[in-house]
Design a protein around this nucleic acid. Structure first.
Lengths: 133, 133
DNA sequence: TCTTGCTATGGAGTTAACTCCATAGTTTAA
DNA sequence: TTAAACTATGGAGTTAACTCCATAGCAAGA
């Protein structure tokens, strides 16, 4: 598949694809006789993986760290698997933070009429994350 | 409370506090006789609220939109409450996206040994979000 | 064959969200 | 009362993650 096809398949600009390759997020893509990129199935999988994780808010920096480790040779399948698990744990941590914020907003909503806004209460509501009414 | 106290309380740089005020994220803070900022309890609540939502990944742009509406005069308590609910819904949508990514990673982890990486499978795993083994 | 359209590269430009700087007034501890 | 520390303002600088541009080689249809 050429860059145009990939760009359309993933709804990513060609510039972004070239940029990701340039900074080492994507592996060096093979070129055909006239120097044009030819994306393999594996390349496609990487594009997909990176897009999903980017959309989930992972920074390019941590993704580069991940792919470098993942692609490194002195590295067993067990290690690769544990890298995926680490990646997932990171996201789970993030979700917990957001859930905390949602609970805090729920507290504010539920108590909207019944209490005066005091900073100490707000702070406690956020930190304890009780859904007291 | 002066800017130094707020800065320490929320672990935010003074520059950030001044910046938030300048762009209208925080209301205009009252000044004392020599022009120094004096943060009221209400101001403090705004700092807290904005920090929590920023940490949850909300952009400054949408926060400004929110605070402008929220502070607007022609605006009932009911409207304010529904703005909070909207805010919460936005975050919940975000969490769902991330949960999808976590499920996708789980799929990859669970099937790490047992399947060859095919793009169509990956894509389906992400979109359907089944945890098939 | 000619023109229009796609691709490549290196480098410059952009946007969000700060962060830093220069200059100047204010407060405080010695 | 003077030096060190803090505050204010306007504006410049920074970082991440693209996005755009100029130039030049290839390609495909009329």
């Amino acid at each position: 598949m050429n860059i145009n096809a990939i760009s359309k398949e993933f709804n990513l600009s060609k510039d972004t694809l070239r940029y990701w390759e340039r900074i080492g997020l994507l592996p060096k893509i093979k070129r055909n006789s006239s120097g044009y990129r030819e994306y393999s199935e594996t390349d496609k999988n990487w594009v997909f993986y990176i897009q999903v994780l980017r959309n989930a808010g992972m920074t390019i920096e941590s993704l580069i760290e991940f792919v470098d480790l993942y692609r490194s040779d002195n590295n067993t399948n067990e290690t690769r698997k544990s890298l995926l698990i680490e990646q997932r744990d990171l996201l789970e941590q993030e979700i917990k933070e957001r859930q905390k914020t949602i609970n805090y907003l729920s507290y504010k909503i539920n108590n909207y009429d019944s209490h005066t806004l005091k900073y100490e209460n707000e702070k406690l509501a956020y930190e304890n994350n009780k859904e007291e009414k």
